[in-house]
Amino acid sequence: MSDPRPASPLGGPEVDHVCSAKGCRATAAHAVVWNNPKLHTADRRKVWLACDEHEKSLADFVALRGFLIEVVPVGQLTDADG
């Protein structure tokens, strides 16, 4: 039997996206896209998901280290993100 939920841009059925902030279980609306050039190739796009409350703190954390690429709505994630 097939899953009636639509596929997510990251593959598989659409699921609730949970905020990546420690201890937070809220639904994420934002994707903090980053890359640590000492660990990842230039085309690698790491993603932390964030609820409205934690979007700024998660983005600031990676930006402070020079890793922030962009912050986008979760719906704009592509197969290249992950």
Results as ranks from 00 to 15, higher is better:
D3W: 08
D3I: 11
R5S: 05
R5T: 09
P6F: 03
P6M: 09
A7C: 06
A7I: 07
P9W: 02
G11F: 05
G11L: 12
G12C: 10
P13W: 02
V15Q: 11
H17A: 13
A21G: 02
K22T: 14
G23S: 07
R25M: 00
R25A: 01
R25C: 00
T27M: 08
T27C: 05
A28L: 04
A29P: 00
A29F: 03
H30I: 02
H30G: 00
H30R: 10
A31C: 04
A31Y: 01
V32S: 05
V32C: 08
V33H: 11
W34G: 03
W34C: 06
N36A: 15
P37Y: 03
K38P: 00
A42P: 12
A42K: 15
A42V: 14
R44N: 07
R45F: 07
R45E: 11
R45T: 11
W48D: 13
A50N: 02
A50G: 02
D52S: 09
E53P: 00
S57W: 00
S57V: 12
L58W: 00
A59Y: 05
A59V: 03
D60A: 06
A63S: 11
A63W: 09
A63F: 04
L64F: 06
G66S: 10
I69T: 08
V72I: 15
P73G: 07
Q76S: 10
T78R: 10
T78Q: 08
D79S: 14
D79Q: 12
A80L: 13
G82A: 14
